[in-house]
């Protein structure tokens, strides 16, 4: 497993060799799943008993001010973010 490359996909910087040894142990352990005969098993991604839960589409949030106050940068009551397009250095 190329730890550095995978970490980059998750926007994480890792040191050289960081995690490598333990990942080979963990992946070695989880590899035992490959022994299981799953030819007749469906996938279970979630256990919810409910299907198609609907609700009225109404605005209910009253805590806008509290949420704004958590934001690192704001301008005129909007969240301010860094520019999305920039020249590669």
């Amino acid at each position: 497993m190329e730890v550095k490359k995978i970490a980059k996909l998750a926007y994480l910087i890792v040191e050289e060799k960081e995690f490598e040894k333990e990942f080979s142990a963990i992946l070695g352990y989880v590899d035992k799943l490959k022994e299981v005969d799953v030819s007749r098993a469906e996938e279970t991604a979630n256990l919810s008993c409910s299907k198609n839960v609907f609700r009225e589409d109404v605005e209910e949030r009253k805590e806008t001010k509290d949420i704004l106050s958590l934001m690192p940068e704001t301008k005129n009551n909007y969240l301010e973010v860094k520019e999305v397009f920039f020249e590669n250095e």
Binding site: L9, V30, L33, K34, V36, V38, A41, E43, T44
Partner: peptide, 19 residues
């Protein structure tokens, strides 16, 4: 979850979960 490993790991795990 990454391409190329999704079936071998994640999908396999979801099936074992059913069992």
């Amino acid at each position: 979850l990454s391409a190329g490993y999704y079936d071998a790991y994640y999908k396999q795990a979801l099936k074992v979960r059913t069992l």
